[in-house]
Design a protein around this nucleic acid. Structure first.
Length: 605
DNA sequence: TTTAAGACTTGGGGACAGGTGG
DNA sequence: CCACCTGTCCCCAAGTCTTAAA
């Protein structure tokens, strides 16, 4: 079911370069299918073939990365003091010092670990003389540096329109030159073509490595990936790449090894690209396949709660949590390398409490742990009796710091899931439960009688239900109270306005009753319309306030971008004749172009 | 089989641009 | 026109899962 009518064709996508296929070709609009699978070979509608040998592309050409600006030494009047004495720092030591100076206002520069890590790495950049003079961070005075940077950023804000425009144009030029690549026949936007500048590592939560120096990346650190028959990116004059390779089994264009965790960083394509879009689509198709067999799997894990084998019971209870609570898998992490956070399989005894009875509920489990990004997961939830009994069993003879599921890890769990359904892993449950929840909530909350703002509120509420399920929290925005107050003021004003209008309506009605002439009749009509308009405006403001209030600590973006099958939203928009812009902003529309073209109003996840 | 490396997705926060209302 | 506010985009960290190596 695809409507090829030209009205749907997004015109903005037609401005791409003429000499290559426009971006939209692979997301195209005037053909009855997106793409489909025949014996595991993918065909795109114009017969562009997806290989089966694991290769991701045939041709790849790009300009390489944009490096961070080189360090510019401080002007001489900006001084640094240690123990009251001025020291002129060598450029390498000075550069690292400026990283610290720029962070002076942040709370974390007061943290012991941060200071210790920073000082250790800073000393590595010092000359022997500096090393002997600077032995205690507490005696270091970075104030002039800090003031200097504050003044600098103030000056940037005060720049003239012309200067700002110049910078903007330069950025645009760099984007045009480095921000795109040619992959097979498409010009594609690159995601992050700028190399991360050096600085002090922060990390999230209680990170043992906070404050360490994230070193500058040079061309000699860079691995370039492109096709042999492309024009290879040139390293900056006088330098060379670490390696030039031609690996079409991967999607990245540039990589380097970062020095904090020793992990590899990549430059890849933007989410709007064919290669990301197809992968995204595939992810949701896997989740839809789970939908078809999820009841079978649920029966199975409930059955496994009765198994003779401990490992199977643990596996089954963990899977129950992942399914019911949308927990992450929980890979093991190396101790001391990262903040202490857990997911399902890595839960420890100290992270749960069991209450056979709590208030009017039975078999309540209380979860309290730090998950990804050290975001707290707190939940009190009744579970099925047999799961509860199993948990009691798993806790026997254990210390708080022991693993709850000591016979289980993510690889065991995923191996099991793979046997239950092709392509099934723990995170598919999160995708599935998020998407199905959105679909159900939209169905339950959208009322045909609601006006547009009302429907949008319903959409956001459905989205919110998912964000809550996935525990996507945010710190309340710093300006939250203020902006709430502003909105309330607007509402109060509107209410006053409404009262006035109503009074005027009443008066004009009385006038009309008295005179019965044509002019007064018209006046009544006008007033009636005004009252109606103001009522509507008031309602919209109130709706906005409700939405904002409910959203105080909830982040909708992550679920929208990563968990919700966009076709559900597109279908909802079509069904209620709401323009897609009300639900997706420009970036999101670009990412979900495939779904916007594909989904009809009757799409079922 | 276990561990480490590699590849790719998911995550919150903040800078900044651009719109809005006074 | 300016100050302020809001939404967007960038930043880059931190997960998941696969693949390669020991």
């Amino acid at each position: 079911g695809f409507d090829p009518s030209p009205k749907q064709k997004p015109t903005k996508r037609e401005r791409d370069d003429e000499d290559i296929l426009p971006l939209c070709m692979h997301l195209c609009t005037n053909v009855p299918v997106w793409f489909f699978i025949i014996s595991s070979v993918w065909f795109v509608r114009w017969e562009e073939e997806r290989a089966t040998d694991g290769s991701k592309w045939r041709f790849l050409e790009h300009k390489g990365p944009v490096f961070a600006l080189p360090y510019e030494p401080l002007p001489l009047h900006v001084r640094f003091f240690c123990d009251g004495k001025q020291i002129k720092l060598s450029p390498p030591a000075e550069e690292v010092a400026t990283f610290f100076a720029k962070m002076l206002d942040h709370e974390y520069t007061t943290k012991d670990i941060f200071r210790k890590n920073f000082f250790k790495d800073w000393r590595k950049e010092m000359t022997p003389e500096e090393k002997s003079k600077i032995t205690d961070l507490n005696k270091c005075n970075f104030n002039e540096m800090s003031e200097h940077f504050k003044a600098q950023s103030e000056a940037r804000k005060q720049m003239s329109k012309d200067e700002k425009l110049k910078i903007k144009e330069e950025n645009e030029r760099i984007l045009q030159e480095y921000g795109f690549c040619l992959m097979d026949n498409h010009k594609e936007r690159i995601g992050n073509f700028r190399i991360e500048p050096p600085g002090l590592f922060r990390g999230r939560g209680d990170h043992p490595k906070m404050g360490m120096l994230k070193r500058r990346i040079r061309p000699e650190d860079i691995i370039i990936n492109c096709s042999k028959d492309s024009k290879h990116p040139k390293p900056p004059a006088g330098t060379r790449w670490k390696e030039l390779r031609h690996d079409n089994k991967v999607t990245w264009l540039v990589s380097w090894t970062e020095n904090i965790q020793g992990s590899i960083k990549y430059i890849m394509l933007n989410p709007s690209s064919r290669i990301k879009g197809e992968k995204d689509w595939q992810k949701y198709e896997t989740a839809r396949r789970l939908k078809k067999c999820v009841e079978r799997l649920r029966t199975q894990y409930r059955d496994d709660w009765k198994s003779k084998e401990m490992r199977i019971r643990q596996r089954a209870v963990a899977l129950y949590f992942i399914d019911k609570l949308a927990l992450r898998a929980g890979n093991e992490k190396e101790e001391g390398e990262t903040a202490d956070t857990v997911g399902c399989c890595s839960l420890r005894v100290e992270h749960i409490n069991l209450y056979p009875k709590m208030d009017d509920q039975e078999y309540v489990v209380e979860f309290d742990f730090l998950g990804k990004d050290s975001i707290r997961y707190y939940n009190k939830i009744p579970v099925e009796k047999r799961a509860f009994k199993n948990l009691q069993l798993f806790l026997e003879n254990k210390q708080p710091e022991d693993d709850l599921f000591d016979r289980l890890n993510t690889s065991i769990l995923n191996k099991h899931l793979q046997e239950l359904m092709d392509g099934l892993t723990a995170k598919v449950f999160r995708t599935y439960n998020a998407s199905i929840t959105l679909q159900q909530q939209l169905k339950a909350l959208t009322s045909p009688d609601d006006n547009l703002p009302g429907k949008i509120l319903s959409y956001n509420r459905a989205n919110r239900a998912v964000a809550v399920l996935c525990n996507h929290q945010r710190a309340p925005p710093k300006t939250f109270e203020k902006s709430m107050q502003n909105l309330q003021t607007k509402i109060d004003d509107k209410q006053k306005q409404l009262a006035t209008s109503r009074k005027q309506l009443k008066t004009s009605k009385a006038d009309h009753k008295a005179s019965h002439d044509e002019k007064s009749k018209k006046a009544v009509e006008t007033k009636r319309k005004t009252v109606q308009r103001i009522e509507e405006q008031l309602m919209n403001l109130q709706m906005q306030a409700t939405d904002r209030e409910e959203n105080k600590q909830i982040a909708l973006g992550t679920s929208k971008l990563n968990y919700l099958d966009p076709r559900i939203s597109v279908a909802w928009c079509k069904k209620w004749e709401i323009s897609i812009e009300k639900v997706y902003n420009k970036t999101q529309r670009e990412k979900f172009a495939w779904a916007i073209d594909m989904a009809e109003d009757d799409f079922e996840f």
